[in-house]
Simulated assay, not measured.
Amino acid sequence: MENKQKLGFATRQIHVGKIKDASGALCTPIYQTSTFEFETVQQGGARFAGEEPGYIYSRLSNPSLTQAEEKLASLENGEAALAAASGMGAISAALWTSVVAGDEILASDTLYGCTFSLLCHGMTKFGVDTKFIDMVNLENFQKHLTPKTKVIYFETPCNPTLKILDIKAIAETVHKYNPSIRVIVDNTFCSPYLQRPLELGADVVVHSATKYINGHGDVIAGFIVGTAEFIGQCRTFGLKDMTGAVLSPFDAFLIARGLKTLDIRMERHCSNARKVAEFLYSHPAVDKVYYPGLPDFKGYEVARKQMKDFGGMLSIELKAGRDEVANALNSLRLCTIAVSLGDAETLVEHAASMTHSTYTPEELAAAGISEGLVRISVGLEDPDDIIADLKSVLDTLVS
């Protein structure tokens, strides 16, 4: 599609990447094939040599994946994108493409549990050092930059405390020190509808597309977005050789379908979360609410500057003890006790024992994740029904 970046967000999420086939199908068909025919041996050789464009084998590329990749690249305003079989597949491929033994990664001190485990326990086995630091304090952050630093990695909002990091300020600080350091931002909590890190100076964006990108809780997927050169390196090395985390054509089809309603879904997630956060803020059983849209939240001003809206995620700390909280949450009737996020259903989880169980108690404390923190992915249900379900449980914790 010509001039795709000049079209509106909603138009691009629907039309970019569409492949017209001989049947005239409105929706791009699912290309459920492992390999592709060559007209001649010479053509096959030219494609393998990179002298001719075209499909070779679905571990490298597939038309169904191309459609989803082009959509997300357009929505993030990146040159290109690469689909992977999971968010961790995308993160791993991006990181392995960026570093070698002896290099150093500076990462945020608050991250999704599996990302933390990869950086803390996985990369170090292969000679890549990772330092976890508070990136809110830019002066302290700057002191940790060294000639060995090759990657800066962070989420914002951070999972699960919703801590906000200033993408533009971090990217400017890093690139002033060394323009070749790669700034990688996990944009899962926001989606490109709410926040576009590349426009703020980041070099690479990663997503767990399992969440808001797909939006229906029926796909595991991930994406990397960046320059065409870097995405090409991720495709031929990070994905093809290092991880093999290839997305299936059918899951790519579901991702492309989910993306068609991204803006509508995100608007509802945001409006529902705002109402739920305001209710929780005033409930006597709640000790603290972590939500960027509350004016007294520490990162409110930065979030207002770099996000279109404040998202559908929030966390709370309750005044009751851990066991009492767990027993109360077991009484939820509408909200679902489950990990993941960005689904149509409201999902509630205990971070320390679930998504962030890879952290030791000391690491949890350092990341600001308390034993009583409850993370809520606010869904698309009627907000009054979500609030009523939460209220029925929280009221039992008030003496």
Rank of each mutant, 00 (worst) to 15 (best):
Y193P: 00
C158P: 00
V206K: 03
I167R: 04
A202D: 08
D166C: 09
D166L: 12
I184D: 00
V219A: 11
A221P: 03
Y177E: 06
H207Y: 15
H175N: 08
F154C: 06
F154Y: 13
T161Q: 12
G201W: 12
V174H: 02
I164S: 08
F154S: 05
E199P: 00
L194I: 05
D186M: 03
K163A: 15
Y193F: 15
H207M: 12
E199F: 00
F189R: 05
I184H: 01
S191V: 01
V205L: 09
N178E: 13
P160K: 08
R196S: 11
N214W: 00
D186R: 02
T210V: 07
D186F: 02
I152G: 02
E199G: 00
Y193W: 14
H207F: 15
T210N: 10
K163L: 13
S180I: 06
Y193T: 01
D186Y: 00
V219R: 12
G217V: 04
I170W: 02
G217F: 05
H175D: 09
V185Q: 05
Q195Y: 11
Y177S: 00
G215A: 13
L194E: 01
L200I: 08
I152A: 06
I152L: 10
N159D: 14
E155W: 04
L165Q: 08
N214L: 07
P157T: 12
A221C: 09
P157V: 11
K211Q: 12
P179I: 02
E172R: 15
S180R: 14
T156K: 08
S208F: 02
S180T: 14
A171G: 01
A171S: 14
C158T: 13
K176V: 00
P160V: 09
K176G: 12
S180Y: 06
N187Y: 03
V219Y: 06
V206G: 05
R182V: 10
I167Q: 01
S208T: 10
P160H: 00
A169H: 02
V206A: 08
N159T: 15
P197Q: 10
N159W: 10
Q195T: 07
H207Q: 12
P160Y: 00
S208H: 03
R196K: 15
F189Q: 14
I184V: 14
K176H: 14
R182S: 10
A202W: 07
Y153H: 14
V151I: 14
L200V: 03
Y193G: 01
P160W: 00
P179G: 05
N159H: 15
V185L: 06
E172V: 13
I213D: 07
N178I: 04
K150E: 11
L165D: 02
K211P: 13
P160S: 11
G215E: 04
S180L: 14
D218A: 06
Y212A: 14
P157M: 09
V219N: 13
A209N: 11
L165H: 13
A169R: 11
N187F: 01
S208R: 02
A171K: 04
L194W: 01
I181G: 08
V206M: 05
E199S: 13
P179Q: 07
D203M: 08
T173V: 13
A171C: 12
I184T: 02
D186W: 05
Y153P: 03
E172I: 07
Y153E: 09
H175V: 03
K168D: 11
H216Q: 13
T156F: 05
D203K: 04
K150M: 12
V183N: 01
K150H: 08
